[in-house]
Design a protein around this nucleic acid. Structure first.
Length: 217
DNA sequence: TGCCAGGTGAAAG
DNA sequence: CTTTCACATGGC
């Protein structure tokens, strides 16, 4: 077993393996044609994707485009009951609509929210808040999800709380929004391909560096 | 057929 | 502080 790679080493490995993920996906053509804010798509997607497959979110985003408008302004003016029907495929749709309404309200008053503003809203936790700040507002805040925690534990033997993990990532990486965006996406991809609940260590690109794939160490 | 997916919040032990 | 549960839908 080789030495554990640095976080940047792991980043390079994942980038070489999977290629750029280019998160967050945005339909720029749509927003150009409808004169809507691409930011809104990221914010709406961030809430809708909570504990749900992205493929479900895409269905809901398409339905918003067809049945209304993919914008926070539409979220604001559309009655909750209608909005709930539109985004129903994502699951947890009642609470997600409630959250979207509150978010749209906040962002009508506050041009650029901070972490505290967001986390106060029911339905916005640490991860969704960081996703919005990083991908919509380009603030250098590292997004921690359960995949990040799992990979840190398996690779390095680190059992961290989300707060500690965030601190760890930010202390060991250049404060670079581009890297933060891409790294989170790559970790997500890696967790889906190999570092699943029951890991597929055979063929895993990080196996030679990973504690978990080398029981003898 | 039960488990899980780009979480969060409330309540209990 | 940690475990557990509800929140909901649909694919595998």
């Amino acid at each position: 077993m080789k030495l554990n790679p640095s976080l940047m080493g792991l980043y390079q490995l994942l980038l070489d393996t999977y290629g750029p993920q280019n998160w967050w996906p945005v339909d720029h053509l749509y927003h150009r044609e409808h004169k809507t804010d691409p930011k809104d798509e990221i914010i709406i997607g961030a809430v809708l994707t909570q504990n749900t497959l992205w493929s479900r979110v895409e269905i809901a985003l398409d339905r918003l485009k067809r049945m209304g408008e993919l914008s926070l302004n539409f979220v604001r003016k559309c009655p909750s009951e209608i909005l709930e029907e539109i985004v129903k495929p994502v699951g947890f749709y009642r609470q997600k609509v409630r959250t979207l309404k509150a978010l749209a309200e906040l962002l009508e008053k506050v041009r650029e929210p901070n972490y505290e503003d967001l986390i106060k809203l029911k339905g916005i936790g640490p991860e969704t808040a960081c996703v919005i700040l990083l991908y919509a507002f380009h603030q250098p805040t590292f997004v921690i999800d359960k995949y990040t925690l799992r990979i840190l534990q398996r690779l390095y033997g680190l059992k961290l709380t989300p707060k500690k993990a965030k601190k760890f990532m930010e202390e060991h990486l250049p404060k670079d929004v581009g890297i933060y965006k891409e790294y989170h996406a790559l970790l997500d991809q890696h967790a889906k391909k190999f570092c699943k609940s029951t890991p597929l260590c055979g063929g895993c690109p990080a196996a030679t560096y990973c504690l978990s794939a080398n029981p003898s160490f």
